[in-house]
Amino acid sequence: MFNFDEARFLKIQAGAVHLAPRIDQEIGAAIAAGASNLFFLGTGGVAYLMEPAVQLLHRRSGFPVYKDYPAELVLTGSANLTAKSIVVMPSLSGTTKESVAMLAKLQEVGARIITLVGHADTPLGQGGTPALVNFAEDDTSSESFYIQSLLVALSVLKARGEIDNYDALVAELATAPAALVAAKKAFEPKAEEFARIIAGSDYHMFTGAGNMWPEALYYATCILEEMQWIRTRPVHASDFFHGPLELIEPGVSLILFRGEDACDPLAERVVQFARQYTDKLTVISTADYCPKSLSPELRALLSPAIMATLMERLSAHLEVMRDHPLVTRRYYKRVAY
């Protein structure tokens, strides 16, 4: 595959899967000790990567789960954030400014803080109780964080007796790194074609439903806007028919991410409408590339990670095609803000 280190990728994703026992131990112990709720507190793109886990718990668990912006929460506090809260704080660098500020507040409150980081010798790597470390870089971190947050959600369900096949799912997750590579290989012959679609316009609308929406939002904002300086308009498929549909006309690029969860009918509704009014509808579906060896349940749960791994292949071609490396920035970590 083009510009891809398979051994490095497999090592990083396996590292995420191997955190399962530690995550389960920490979540189980916290809930057994009387934890009252769970907060996912990420900043920027990594917060989007937590959203499928938040969705899963909102829909399958009675345990109170919250997602908030650390930059706001550090200013306002929350009546629900207490010493009985479990807080999951992801940060690849371990140095994210807003999250580091939030860490100090959480320590004052006395919450149980689980940090998910890529580097141990950092403020968040030192400040977690515990800090769970799995080294990754930008091109491998999305899948890793999707897997880790899924493990958090599954452990909550297990601890509360809300799932009966935790062990089977976690055992099957051991095959996920290889399945992700297989998906990449299946997508590779079309990656350049899809990259040309992105490169062919300076504006794209992105949409998705269910656990595909966070990945659509992430790819539009954190890859195309941040790393390629391409303007995008992300919109949830549930909101598409409440305003944004009026932007659709010939020549407008609409890119739809489709997964395999229960919300896919919302994506199909967008397809049926948009194909009538724009000649630039692009649909990318995980079902076309994900190995059939995975169970239907795990395919649905892993759809965001699968889409992320496909988009890494697209991006590898896109940065070369546009002569714009993904590491190029105008402002990020270059100027004060």
Rank of each mutant, 00 (worst) to 15 (best):
F2A: 07
D5R: 11
R8T: 13
F9C: 06
I12L: 04
V17I: 01
Q25M: 01
A29Q: 15
A30S: 13
A33G: 07
N37G: 01
N37S: 10
L41T: 00
L41N: 03
T43S: 13
Y48G: 01
Y48H: 14
P52R: 13
L56C: 04
H58S: 11
R60M: 09
R60L: 11
G62M: 05
K67S: 15
D68W: 05
L73D: 04
T76K: 13
A79G: 11
K84L: 09
S85T: 00
V88R: 06
G94K: 12
T95C: 09
M102D: 08
L103V: 08
G110K: 15
G110D: 05
I114A: 14
T115W: 07
T122I: 04
Q126W: 09
T129H: 14
L151P: 08
A153T: 00
V156W: 10
L157N: 08
A159N: 05
I163M: 11
A168R: 11
V170A: 08
E172W: 09
T175E: 12
A183Q: 02
A186D: 08
P189S: 09
K190T: 09
A191R: 06
R196K: 12
R196L: 12
D202V: 01
T207D: 10
M212V: 06
E215H: 14
E225G: 11
E225R: 04
W229V: 00
R233L: 09
R233N: 15
D239K: 12
P250L: 06
L256V: 14
L256R: 03
R258V: 00
G259C: 03
D261P: 05
A262L: 10
L266F: 14
R269I: 05
V271T: 08
Q272F: 07
R275F: 01
T278I: 03
K280I: 03
D288C: 04
L294H: 07
E297P: 00
L298M: 09
R299I: 06
A300T: 05
L302R: 01
L302A: 10
P304S: 15
A305W: 00
I306F: 12
A308T: 04
R313Y: 05
L314W: 10
H317F: 05
H317D: 12
V320F: 01
P325H: 06
V327I: 06
R329Y: 00
